[in-house]
Amino acid sequence: MDSLVKSPWVVHYNCNSCNGCDIEFLACLTPLYDAERFGILHVGNPKHADMLVVTGAVNHRNSRVLRRVYEQMPEPKVVVALGVCTATGGIFAEGYNVLGGIDRVIPVDVFVPGCPPRPEAMIDGIVAALSRLSAKGRGQEVGPAKKDRITYQRPSDPAAEGKDDAAHRP
């Protein structure tokens, strides 16, 4: 049995979220969902954590914080991005200061879509990240996370420039 899988300690970073995902994430820890039965502990700092759970759309101001928090986690580590904002910037994508998805700043292992995702989905996402954590612990290479259900790309992204942009503008 891989011990990495049995005790994921999670640190949660709110990357300018609207707090919808945060409230749902905290619900995971309540008696109803009881994340601790999988050994999931919510620790308050990156130094003890195996898993970084991020909510919100990253912006210029807090991208360096996100990077530092990620750097200060000991290897092996995985990142779980909760909510659509972490994938694309969500409804904030057009903001003048918003960078977009957090995979522009740090490598992400699992995206959990939703606005906000349900607590069950969040726990599912964390458990899904465990296989990647275990693989990293064995020294295997894992590729970038899939974002297959998400089509929207921010205009500044050269690959998506000018395509879907007009359709989303009011």
Binding site: K47, R67, R68
Partner: peptide
């Protein structure tokens, strides 16, 4: 080498 900075809420 595994030295890192102290935890200052990521604002190091």
């Amino acid at each position: 080498r595994h030295e890192r900075l102290p935890f200052l809420c990521g604002e190091n």
